[in-house]
């Protein structure tokens, strides 16, 4: 018997002490909440009637699919998560959940979310959910994230797809409206994540993740944030300009967009010390409110229209 064999026999078996909370953490609940909200809007603005049971099923499957992507991301990224203060306490880098357990958990949830959505709702939505999980776990996590500074630009497509999946779940097809919602989230992602990367660039540099501030520097990132925010404001107003949503949405998107643009200009102008960090933090925080508010207005429009149709 070789020395290696002796050592392998000497290793004590690892008994998992992972709790339910650790597995919930693998699902990235905060990301999931945004996914659920945007998907809910995509589902409710879709034309026609969706039975509540099918609506709940769709949202549940999309949520679980998003969670599965998060678990697969945490499995693959455990090495770099351990090096960043923001992610070091996640279940895999701390050893509460083994990489194998995270991988198995992610794969099982991916399978069940896609198959359940396909069987119970429709296969257009099922296929789109499978593509979303694949895009996030393989294209973004395994390929883009460690390779290019454009990682979150292209990878942002995965985060932008949930309302499209939900629309497909409601209608069985695709249309211009969900693509507009997709574009809003897609162009929102770079200013949001680059604002975060500006005040977390040390973390990303330590982990060797080529985020834009690490690769191109903070000033180039500030310019990109400003440019993407200008495009975002225009894209966010497009659904109103093209006649898909009402003037209430249009005016709200312009007001919110104007505010976001002011914060992006502030980030562009303040480049040194504490004011620069504060400006980036303000933009990061407001970007979350911005996206939530835009989609909440769409949701409100649908609810008001439904109430008026019922009692009007």
């Amino acid at each position: 018997m070789s020395i290696v064999d002796n050592h392998s026999l000497a290793l004590p078996p690892r008994i998992s002490e992972a709790g339910v909370g650790d597995y919930i953490a693998l699902l990235k609940p905060r990301v999931m909440s945004l996914v659920v909200f945007t998907a809910l809007v995509g589902l409710l603005i879709a034309p026609g009637h969706v039975h509540p049971v099918l609506a709940i099923t769709s949202i549940l499957c999309i949520a679980v699919g998003a969670g599965a992507s998060g678990a697969l991301n945490m499995w693959y990224d455990a090495d770099i998560d351990a090096l960043m203060s923001r992610t070091a306490k996640r279940p895999v880098p701390t050893g509460r959940v083994t990489p194998q357990e995270a991988l198995t958990f992610g794969l099982i949830l991916s399978f069940f979310s896609v198959v359940t959505l396909g069987i119970l709702v429709n296969w257009v939505a099922g296929a789109l959910l499978a593509f979303t999980i694949f895009f996030y776990a393989v294209v973004y996590t395994m390929w883009l994230k460690r390779w290019t500074a454009q990682n979150i630009v292209i990878g942002g497509a995965a985060g932008a797809l949930p309302p499209v999946v939900a629309w497909a779940a409601a209608t069985g097809s695709l249309s211009v409206e969900p693509i507009l919602l997709f574009l809003i989230i897609f162009f929102w992602t770079p200013p949001h994540f680059w604002a975060l990367a500006l005040f977390r660039s040390d973390d990303y540099a330590r982990a060797g993740v080529p985020m834009l501030p690490v690769v191109a520097g903070p000033d180039a990132t500030r310019l990109q944030i400003l440019l993407y925010t200008i495009v975002l404001v225009a894209v966010a107003a497009a659904p109103w300009a093209l006649g898909y949503f009402s003037a209430v949405y249009g005016v709200s998107s312009l007001v919110l967009g104007g505010w976001m643009l002011l914060l992006a200009i502030n980030v562009y102008r303040r480049r040194e010390g504490a004011p620069a960090v504060r400006a980036a933090r303000q933009l990061f925080g407001f970007s979350l409110i911005y996206l939530f508010a835009l989609f909440a207005i769409l949701l409100l429009e649908v609810v008001v229209a439904a109430v008026l149709a019922q009692f009007g």
Binding site: H51, T57, T116, I119
Partner: peptide, 22 residues
């Protein structure tokens, strides 16, 4: 939850549960 979900959708869709458009 999965069992309840399949049961509820079967009740909602009735015989159409087997109709799954691509």
């Amino acid at each position: 939850i999965l069992v309840v979900l399949f049961f509820a959708v079967t009740l909602v869709k009735g015989p159409a549960v087997l109709n799954r458009p691509m």
